[in-house]
Amino acid sequence: MNLVTVNRLIRNGVTNFVRNIWLSIAATSIMAITLFIISTIIVLYTLTTLSIDNIKDKVGISAYFNNQVTDLEIQNVKQELEAMAGVKQIEFIPKTVAKEKFIATHKDEPLLLETINEFRDSENPLPNSFAIKAYDLTDYSGITSTLKSERFASYFQKIRDNSKVIDRLFKITDAIKKLGLFLVAIFIVVTVMVMFNTIRLTIYNRRDEVEIMRLVGATNWYIRWPFIIEALLYALLASLVVGIVVFALLFLLSNKVGAFLSLQDLGGTLLEALFWKILSVNVLSSVMLGIIASLFAIRRYLRI
């Protein structure tokens, strides 16, 4: 196939697009809606995953000892817990360190500082504690229940486990994934159907031309290509429109979203990467849908 032919095929495809401009716009729009849904899901999924990664390090169990627990007992408990499956690391935080940390975190609150400084070191009200990290998020609930079991309950005054937060985030991502896939599936079917019908109509409108092409010696692919190109135009145009919209939204919302999901680093590079990812997914999926729809229509209705 030479350049002249390619040029003619593209011109034919554009003609197909323009002749039924309203139908073409409808097909492009439904494609754009589908792409927008896909894009939204990618954004939401990426952001929640990011924020999970971000707070994963902060997840852990804080186990606060009763005051009367002795150093030796603490040693033993530590050894015993370390032997547990799933426990990655146990850091002992003595009450002195706890006090320093307290002072550090509340350095702007003079009232609190005054209160804590009322106590002499021997009277330090902050307890000794363990900061426990697990290998895996799913290990936390097991560790927490062990800590609360009869064997250990007497040592601790309080167990704090913030892995639930992350659990909730996981559920959210999971829900996004499921709902997203469901929506995407429905819209993909609708999009293919709409494009299929639009191309079917173009084929119908050009039936005389197709017949004559055939009779004067056009190859089958020469006849088919314009209809595929028509579908590709829907795909690329929809990708372009959605690309612009997504770019604008990401740009406008980046600060708010970053703050909301406690992501410090929702910086330019990350957004840029996300944008390119969305754009390429959009282009790829729309082109695929376009080709599928047009090939089906051609197979079914183009009598050559």
Binding site: V4, M213, G217
Partner: peptide, 11 residues
């Protein structure tokens, strides 16, 4: 011209 176009003749 159409008959020539569809069979890939040069412009």
């Amino acid at each position: 011209a159409f008959a020539m176009e569809v069979s890939g003749e040069k412009n």
